[in-house]
Nucleic acid binder design. Structure first.
Lengths: 171, 171
DNA sequence: CCTCCTGATTGCGAAATCCGCAGCCTCTGG
DNA sequence: CCAGAGGCTGCGGATTTCGCAATCAGGAGG
């Protein structure tokens, strides 16, 4: 995951803007700009402009708008394992009642980095990042299962991260 | 997902560097720098330096090293849904035989954005991003299940992305 | 205790980039 | 035909990035 929507801040997918379809339709140029930034988030506007055929100022304005609209975000991404978080897991959640309210509750937990509503045997899939086994246990058994509406959960502890990209555009 | 390891490029988690523990130990200053860049990947080095108590040049060198080492990457992250990819899904995979080789095969597919080996009822969890239902069906039924060693799969189609952050450090 | 090395940090100018703004153009709607 | 809005371009001035040489700190040896 994690290539998913842009969390406006530390919070949730604020409005439900365009989770529906694609909301603001992006033209080919904006797509090209995004591709450039997917390769290098710090690439200078002038270089991007040259690549997509636009002036430096125009690129700057477009990027700012994409950022403001929440269509994209430029951030540093790391491997939690190299930064002190020893345990990560994907947790499948079975919900009874309103799924969205449960999702909101999980979204509020800082340990949950990724929350998505799904179709299938799980109603929600959540990625949690913890410092150690105790922490992971605490989050799953005490916090997540304590949320009203959570019927049961199933965990998949990460053994090894094999791939993580943000370059869909380039294919 | 997706806050996971840093794909060196378009490829996979190259070496298995430190999937083990945390490899190169990061000191508090580097952590602080990463936190700054998790908030804004384009923040100027001088501003970061002021925040972490280091000169502009020192920050620049540290960032460059973190990038070179593959500890972090600075990129644009979007919500695939707003960029034309209509279908996303998490796929749980049951493997017989060598899990790693299957993981490598999946990693090679451009539609698989995220591949992780897990403990639990699934041996692998894969996030796939497709343009439409046909494409998704093709990827899951023809491509993934065709990989030698894949015994069976279970899909969880994304209905709505609720949260996605990269700010674990700030808590 | 002194010296040699290595690695990280700092302090600069010079070059490149970012930023705000005014002017243009195009498209839409009175 | 005339606003008005939106998007682009050009252009200085302020900032930031870059490359480098000098400085510092921390061992390893002698």
């Amino acid at each position: 995951m994690h290539s998913g929507a842009v969390a406006s801040r530390s919070a949730d997918q604020k409005d439900s803007r365009e989770s529906r379809n694609g909301g603001t339709q992006l033209d080919a140029v904006s797509l090209a700009i995004i591709e450039q930034l997917q390769e290098d988030g710090r690439r200078p506007y002038a270089a991007i402009g040259k690549a997509v055929g636009l002036s430096e100022a125009a690129v700057r304005q477009r990027v700012q708008k994409l950022l403001d609209q929440g269509v994209m975000q430029i951030v540093a991404v790391t491997d939690p394992l190299t930064v002190g978080f020893r345990r990560q897991a994907m947790v499948g959640v079975h919900v009874e009642g309103d799924v969205e309210s449960v999702a909101d509750a999980l979204t509020a937990m800082s340990e949950c980095e990724y929350v998505v509503m799904t179709a299938g045997s799980f109603d929600l899939m959540v990625e949690v990042v913890c410092e150690d086994d105790d922490h992971l246990l605490e989050v799953i058994n005490r916090r997540i299962r304590a949320v009203p509406g959570v019927r049961s959960t199933e965990s998949f502890v990460y053994l090894k991260l094999k791939k993580q990209t943000y370059m869909w555009g380039t294919r």
